[in-house]
Simulated assay, not measured.
Amino acid sequence: MTISTTKKIAGAATAAGLLVALAGCGSAPTATSTTTAPAVAGFKPCIVSDAGGWNDKSFNEYAKKGLDEAAATLGVTPVEVQSSSANDYAPNLESLVAANCTLIVSVGFNLAADTVKSALANPNLQYAIVDDSADLNNDGKTDAPNIKPLLFNTVEAGYLGGYAAAAWSAQDGVNKVGTFGGMQIPPVTIFMDGFIDGVQKYNTDKGANVQTFGWDVASQKGVFTGGFEANDTAKQTAKSILDQGVDVILPVGGPIYQSAAQAIKESGKNTVMLGVDSDLAVADPSVASVLLTSITKHVDNAVRDTVIAAAAGKYDPTPYVGTLANGGVGLADFHDFTSKLPAGLTDELAKLQSEIIAGTLTVTSPSSPK
């Protein structure tokens, strides 16, 4: 990837502005004064992963991180159970009920049905679920009054990521970017919607023609691996997008980013990717050399604050929705690519973020939290 010296200098000059302007993207709401309050007698926080497991460098790992931080602050011992497959969800939840847990955090959309069933059967227990509204009836309300949804409007941050990807690809003269997902579920497609819409915003603003592959917002159809495992299926799926000639790719779905990085490195081309959920350059330095940036959601902070509030007797089942405005979602640092960014990009991203927060730029998805 050839980048002019002028663009390198300009990118470096504007990077500091981005870091200041996007500071809110890098942190979720801090815990309230309840962080210093002792836990109510008998308080026992618990958590169950989905099939991605605790080492996914994504929402499972960061949900556990949030619970561990809260438990350390409170001086309590949590119970943490890992699921290997969907068959583990119900029995794992049953084991947490049997362990006398007072707050149970379910991690992921795929645990919704079993979490609702468990919550209805145990109305005196408190629950929280990451990435789902627990509204199986689609009537606009949580199906059990003792479940707190922890949701993230990642379409907003995905929009910024898509704009940045388009700018990067246009700078190279490639003008092609792509994405693929693990499973076609709302917490995945919401990233893809934002990404594609952000590319289109760049095209509109710049009179450009950056093409997109792997997802169509209008039809809500695209390319998926069928799971979240980092395996040959995921690598071949990534390769199918790379074969379209893209020089930026967004894999959405936990560990499948590892397969995408492998496919990029084996291609021998100067393709880069975007991460999701956590800042992958920090969480997994092995992919930093091909990682432009990451579209983040601060699951750890949302879980931590929920646990601490519950420990102080202030559990509130009202859904939490992470946004750019409250710092629950954001765009990570560009790290090693900062000096190589197109001139003016960081200022443009800061302006877009301000407009989204102010409500003068509407960014939404069919999968946005209602």
Rank of each mutant, 00 (worst) to 15 (best):
L361R: 11
G313L: 13
V299P: 04
P369C: 12
L291T: 11
D277R: 05
L341P: 00
L291K: 02
T364L: 06
H335Y: 13
G322L: 12
P342G: 13
I295Y: 06
L352P: 06
L331T: 04
A358Y: 05
L280K: 11
S354Y: 03
I357T: 10
A350D: 06
I295M: 13
A283D: 12
S354F: 01
L280V: 04
V282D: 05
I356K: 07
K297N: 07
D305H: 03
T346N: 15
F337S: 12
V321H: 07
P369S: 11
T364G: 02
Y320V: 04
T360N: 12
A309M: 06
I295D: 01
T318H: 05
G344P: 09
T364V: 03
D305C: 11
N301W: 06
S289C: 05
I357N: 08
T306D: 04
L341T: 12
D284H: 09
A343R: 08
A288Q: 13
A302N: 03
A310G: 04
S365K: 00
V290G: 09
A350S: 13
Y315S: 09
L361W: 00
K314E: 06
V363T: 03
T318E: 12
K340N: 15
L349V: 05
T296N: 07
G328D: 09
L361V: 01
V299T: 11
A309S: 10
L349W: 08
N301C: 01
T293S: 15
D277F: 02
Q353G: 07
T293R: 13
F337N: 15
T360F: 06
F334W: 11
T296L: 14
